[in-house]
């Protein structure tokens, strides 16, 4: 993507006035979610603000937490350290429960239940997504984010919204709309060229 495109997207979002991720009227985060679900053929996307956050979201979505074991074959040192910090034991002989990808990969050609897609390489700051067909996994991953899948209007009233998905520890893994808007255009351009 050239500088002109980035400039145009940034100006457009700034002009809309909506730069906050928990704003009801934000269109940029849902837009990037749509691009990613379309490109991957997966039903749900959980956007986050880094690669480590996306791994955390995927594991939480899959119900893997502290004290559990999972596959770790092929993971690099930062991912192994991160799993250890989460209290998840990684078995080197077993593949991880998610496919670890970047924006440069062809997402339509991946045969995995869970996709972790690192978008940081697009150049707009740390950004990533967890993609899945499983609605329950998506809901659990969203709940890992404070305010996840809710907004300033509804403000996450616990009983009203799916008390069966009770969050444990939560992080602010929310992605910024400005970053999402730039990432989306870059992905679209990349797909075209």
């Amino acid at each position: 993507m050239d500088d002109y495109d980035t400039a145009l997207v940034l100006s457009r979002v700034l002009t809309s006035g909506v730069v906050m991720s928990i704003e009801k009227s934000d269109r940029e985060l849902p837009g990037l979610e749509r691009s990613l679900t379309r490109a991957s053929g997966r039903r749900h996307a959980c956007l986050v603000n880094s690669r480590s956050a996306a791994i955390h979201a995927a594991l939480t979505g899959l119900g893997i937490g502290h004290g559990d074991a999972t596959g770790g074959a092929g993971l690099g040192p930062p991912e192994r350290s991160f799993l250890a910090w989460l209290g998840v034991t990684a078995d080197d002989d077993v593949p991880p429960p998610f496919a670890l990808l970047t924006h440069a990969d062809d997402l339509s050609d991946v045969d995995a239940v869970a996709l972790v897609v690192d978008l940081t390489g697009l150049g707009f700051g740390p950004a990533a997504a967890f993609l899945t067909d499983d609605a329950g996994a998506h809901a659990r991953a969203e709940r890992l984010k404070i305010f996840g899948s809710y907004d300033l209007r509804t403000m996450w009233t616990q009983e009203e919204s799916g008390a069966e998905v009770v969050p444990g520890v939560q992080f602010n893994y929310r992605l910024s709309p400005l970053v999402a808007a730039c990432a989306r255009l870059a992905l679209t351009k990349g797909a075209r060229s």
Binding site: P77, W85, F124
Partner: peptide, 16 residues
């Protein structure tokens, strides 16, 4: 760094 946690700020947020 030791725990592989990426908490970096986006330059877009920072410039604003």
């Amino acid at each position: 760094a030791r725990h592989g946690i990426d908490y970096r700020m986006s330059w877009i947020a920072a410039a604003f």
